[in-house]
Amino acid sequence: MDSLSKSEIESALAARLPSYSVTCTLHADGTLSAILSGPETDHFAITGIVRAHYHGAEAIARLANEILREMVLSRQGIRSGRSQASSAPSHGK
Rank of each mutant, 00 (worst) to 15 (best):
S33R: 05
Q84F: 14
Y20C: 01
T41N: 07
I46K: 09
A59V: 02
T31F: 13
A14W: 11
A88W: 03
S90E: 01
H43C: 03
S21I: 11
H91F: 12
P39Y: 00
S7E: 05
E10C: 04
A15C: 06
G48T: 05
V72W: 05
S80E: 12
A57L: 13
I60H: 01
D42V: 00
S7K: 11
A88H: 10
T41L: 01
S3T: 10
Y54I: 06
V72L: 07
L32M: 08
H43G: 03
L4Y: 06
V22C: 04
I49F: 12
L26R: 04
A57F: 09
S80Q: 06
Q76T: 12
R82I: 13
T23A: 14
E40M: 05
A15W: 03
H55T: 15
E8K: 05
R75Y: 08
S74T: 01
R16M: 01
K6V: 05
R79T: 07
A61P: 11
L68S: 08
S83L: 15
H43L: 05
S7L: 15
G30W: 08
S90Y: 10
S74D: 10
L4I: 09
G77V: 03
A64Y: 12
A52V: 14
E8S: 14
S7I: 14
Y20D: 00
S90K: 03
H55F: 13
K93Y: 08
R51D: 10
L26P: 05
T47Y: 08
T23Y: 05
Q84M: 02
T31S: 01
E58L: 08
I9G: 00
V22Q: 07
E58S: 12
G81M: 06
S5G: 15
P39H: 01
